[in-house]
Simulated assay, not measured.
Amino acid sequence: MPQLPSADIECPYCGEVITVFVDDSAGEQDYIEDCQVCCKPIQIRVRLDEDGMPEVQARGQDDA
């Protein structure tokens, strides 16, 4: 079974760098994942670049 791609993101709350795994077969996505360190909810946005590689952005729920 192939391994899911991963991305390192910085938690917008505690600043720790955490690794998230991305299901790149699902296309573009928006979802919430709790920080593995401080447990606060992070909004994750996944977009695919022109080569089909996932680009991951992380935001706090109260960020504009």
Score class of each variant (00 low, 15 high):
22 V>K: 13
34 D>T: 07
21 F>C: 07
23 D>A: 11
42 I>Q: 14
12 P>G: 03
6 S>T: 12
33 E>S: 13
12 P>M: 01
62 D>N: 08
47 R>V: 09
11 C>A: 13
26 A>I: 05
18 I>Y: 01
24 D>P: 11
41 P>N: 08
7 A>K: 15
52 G>H: 06
26 A>V: 09
12 P>E: 01
59 R>D: 06
12 P>H: 00
28 E>V: 01
40 K>M: 04
44 I>P: 08
10 E>W: 02
25 S>T: 14
11 C>F: 03
31 Y>G: 11
32 I>F: 15
51 D>M: 07
43 Q>W: 00
15 G>I: 01
48 L>S: 10
61 Q>C: 08
24 D>M: 01
2 P>Q: 11
41 P>Q: 03
48 L>Q: 15
20 V>D: 14
44 I>S: 03
53 M>K: 15
37 V>I: 12
10 E>Q: 10
14 C>L: 11
3 Q>G: 14
8 D>W: 12
37 V>R: 02
11 C>E: 10
38 C>R: 11
31 Y>A: 11
39 C>D: 06
26 A>D: 06
40 K>H: 04
51 D>E: 12
51 D>F: 01
57 Q>F: 03
14 C>K: 05
36 Q>D: 15
46 V>M: 02
4 L>E: 14
45 R>W: 04
37 V>H: 03
26 A>W: 00
54 P>E: 02
7 A>Y: 05
55 E>D: 07
10 E>N: 13
5 P>T: 12
3 Q>E: 15
20 V>M: 12
8 D>T: 14
43 Q>D: 09
50 E>W: 01
52 G>W: 03
16 E>L: 06
60 G>S: 14
34 D>F: 10
21 F>W: 13
59 R>N: 10
60 G>E: 04
26 A>G: 02
44 I>E: 07
42 I>G: 12
10 E>G: 08
26 A>Y: 00
24 D>F: 00
27 G>H: 04
13 Y>D: 01
24 D>R: 09
34 D>Q: 08
3 Q>K: 15
21 F>R: 05
55 E>T: 07
14 C>Q: 09
58 A>M: 03
13 Y>M: 09
6 S>R: 12
17 V>Q: 13
25 S>W: 04
56 V>D: 06
